[in-house]
């Protein structure tokens, strides 16, 4: 035991000593897992890109339950990693607790704002990106019915769905938007089977374009949609390649850029709120060789015009957060 204590102490001392000159950054994935092909994987891609470009290494850990967040964030800060990037809105409370204890460590929070001197908060205008894919969905549908499948039923996901419904109704005010949530527990972020079942249910109600904003669950949504030969829309990462020709587009949220920038800025990075939206391509829709046949020039023109108008302030996309309700859909 004493030997182990010494070893561990030595390791800790080394790690702390190393922070002064050469601190490794660390990344904490949230529930859903590193390879969810969506939110967390986008962060992983950003970290990987940084490691490949700079040749440096980073440390990563996956949270498997809510109660672990504080433990793992503390552990990373305690071990001297800097900056520490944490993902997901639910980590706001984590950082409120951990960040003040480690004033010399820079923290980055993706998806939520925490007002602390050593925290950078990166938020995305997801409702604007969702608005654009909602427009595409409304233009692609032949049944005038589009679907939305969310992960866990929380305001963040309603925020996605609300933008989507507004976009769809901007194209066709009479369109039917069906929205379902996968679940009420965090398991809903990683339940592809249930995602597939919900997809089939929505298809039977007439939906022929279905948008999945559900983390790892979305894989099941895209699969079921492809099996039934209807279109789907991916989220966070570009998921067009998962089923080429059957994924209409993906609502891209550049979590990878948020992580890449944080890692590049390194320890002592500039803190405060960083908002990523349409102007800086923080959110947007994906167009590549896999979905090029699905998006006609007319559709693209309409969406690009709407994008410009949103940036210019001519189109106001209402955020669900403004008064916890949505003008275009009743969740």
């Amino acid at each position: 035991m004493t030997f182990m204590q010494k070893t561990l102490g030595g390791v800790a001392a080394l790690a702390i000593g190393a922070t002064a000159c050469l601190a490794e950054p660390a990344l904490m994935y949230d529930l859903g897992g590193k390879f969810d092909k969506s939110f967390n994987e986008a962060a992983y891609n950003g970290a990987k890109r940084w490691a490949e470009e700079t040749g440096n290494s980073y440390r990563e850990i996956e949270v498997t339950a809510e109660a672990q967040r504080v433990q793992f964030a503390t552990r990373l800060a305690e071990a001297g990693f800097n900056p520490v990037v944490v993902l997901g809105f639910q980590n706001a409370a984590t950082l409120e607790e951990v960040a003040p204890k480690y004033p010399d460590t820079s923290f980055v929070l993706v998806d939520m704002v925490v007002d602390l001197p050593n925290v950078r908060s990166v938020i995305f205008q997801e409702h604007e990106g969702s608005y654009l894919v909602g427009m595409l969905a409304a233009m692609a549908t032949e049944s005038d019915t589009v679907g939305f499948i969310g992960g866990m039923d929380v305001p963040l996901i309603r925020h996605f769905g609300c933008g989507y419904a507004q976009g769809a109704k901007a194209v066709n005010p009479d369109i039917t938007v069906i929205a379902n949530m996968t679940g009420t527990t965090p398991a809903a972020w990683n339940d592809p089977v249930k995602g597939g079942e919900l997809t089939k249910a929505q298809i039977s109600q007439g939906a022929d374009v279905i948008y999945a904003a559900a983390g790892g669950t979305g894989v099941g949504v895209l699969q079921a949609a492809a099996d039934a030969d209807v279109l789907s829309i991916g989220v966070d990462s570009n998921q067009n390649h998962l089923h080429p020709g059957q994924v209409l587009t993906s609502m891209i949220k550049r979590v990878d850029n948020a992580v890449f920038n944080a890692f590049s800025d390194g320890a002592g990075l500039e803190t405060g709120i960083v908002s990523m939206g349409l102007p800086d391509d923080g959110v947007g829709y994906a167009l590549d060789e896999h979905n090029a046949p699905l998006v006609s020039a007319k559709m693209k023109a309409a969406v690009d015009e709407a994008r410009e108008k949103i940036i210019a302030g001519e189109i106001q996309v209402v955020s669900y957060y403004e008064n916890d309700s949505c003008p275009a859909h009743d969740f």
Binding site: A65, A67, T185
Partner: peptide, 8 residues
Amino acid sequence: RLVLNSVE
């Protein structure tokens, strides 16, 4: 504080 899934 009480979080979701506090039982883990």
